[in-house]
Design a protein around this nucleic acid. Structure first.
Lengths: 231, 231
DNA sequence: ACAAAAGTGTTGAGAGTACACCCATGC
DNA sequence: GCATGGGTGTACTCTCAACACTTTTGT
């Protein structure tokens, strides 16, 4: 039972300084949708360990910022975009995950509308890249695991929340929304059933605008229903 | 962009030792079902801060154990029971959550069949207690938050997994299983519909035993279907 | 007029919900 | 024989899945 063992917990006398501490980092899986494909922002490592392999962005937690603040900071450093959807994914802390020292990483994931990204293509050139979630390069640390877990979570959340919309601009066509669902679920969806279901929920509001693209009938634009704050 | 800022991440040169580190603890929400009520194991704090208030068990992470190992260690210290269902819940790390210093806590939750607990009632007497999740005492730190979040997670998981069974002994009656669902969802369920649904999934296996209790018709005992490893 | 994507309805199957009575046992 | 919880079936509604043709635009 607790109380007898010194290292036990917050309920005993405070002796945190007696114990070595692991490092705490915060990593962010940044996802967007390009050409109907789910893509993740990866950074090429230049140093040992895992030199030349790819990793999701992240960094040490500052002492004066919350976990979410840290995630948001990382996110803005990488994308220069604010106010993104951001959610804690999972915390990874296996002993050997970083060969240098003990590192606990709290991972968040973010969804970005590709249109908001001013691509900064040249920037560091080959060091930063949007990779398809379906064709990942060799990943550093346990980051392959992290991305697999992200996809799983995303699929689950798609069914009972509205996260799908976070990958789209404020106004979008139903076909674009359907593409989001298809990319995440990785299966084709019947157009009629999809429209029926989405429209019946009432979270969409029709605009009077349409989107012209190519030589065919223009598509109506929709936006979120203003009073849809639900998850 | 990353690379320019020293503290940035795992992709830059390793300088963890340049930065102060928060403490990392692992806390466990231990749940069981008693008298049709969901109860959580709480420990009364004897020291500042939050002296006299209640907290969930937890302790510092050792450098040579994984997060789950730490959770399992805490769990066994408190319950003396092994092989319990254990799952990571969430990581809490707001700056002010522990007034003494910066503490990141990775919280797990565990489900225990009450019958496996040898109550150890006298032990530390009033210091350790199974409290109803519906009538929580004043809680230390952000532990009230943590318990609210646990309940939410539990409700969600109940619908698409088999965690409910983790609160029961290996053999149980359908009424007992229904009580688990009712305690977690906090609403009455129709007996006939519940049986129909559960039995139609095929995860239950009828035994030839019954359970006598009180002066009425005995109830049939069921167990998990052996090849039901699914979530 | 043709190509290309937008838009639209019906039908059948299965799941969920509401609801009331008989059964086996101890006392 | 009565009190107590165990055990059962039917009818309705709603949701989900399958499926094909017309409409609007640019060229």
């Amino acid at each position: 039972m607790s109380g007898s063992q010194a290292a036990t917990d917050e309920t005993t006398t405070y002796r945190a300084e007696d114990y070595p501490r692991p490092s705490v980092t915060c990593d962010v899986v940044i996802l967007t949708l390009v050409e109907g494909e789910l893509r993740v922002l990866l950074i090429k490592r230049r140093n040992w360990p895992f030199e030349g392999m790819w990793a999701i962005p992240g960094g040490f937690l500052n002492m004066d910022e919350s976990l979410e603040d840290a995630a948001r900071r990382e996110l803005e450093e990488e994308t220069s975009v604010k106010d993104l959807y951001l959610e804690q994914l999972y915390t990874f802390g296996d002993v050997g995950r970083d060969p240098r020292t003990r590192v606990i990483t709290v991972v968040y994931y973010a969804l970005v509308d590709a249109a908001r990204l001013n691509v900064r293509a040249g920037d560091d050139a080959a060091d930063t890249q949007w990779c398809s979630m379906d064709a990942l390069p060799p990943m550093a640390f346990d980051h392959k695991n992290i991305l697999d877990y992200t996809r799983q979570r995303l699929r689950g959340k798609l069914e009972y929340t509205t996260i799908g919309f976070q990958l789209l601009p404020p106004e979008f066509t139903l076909r674009e929304l359907q593409a989001v669902y298809e990319a995440i679920l990785k299966r084709a969806i019947d157009k009629r059933n999809f429209r029926k279901k989405i429209l019946s929920t009432g979270i969409l509001q029709e605009t009077d605008k349409t989107k012209m693209e190519g030589s065919h009938r223009p598509a109506r634009l929709y936006r979120f229903h203003p009073d849809a704050a639900r998850e």
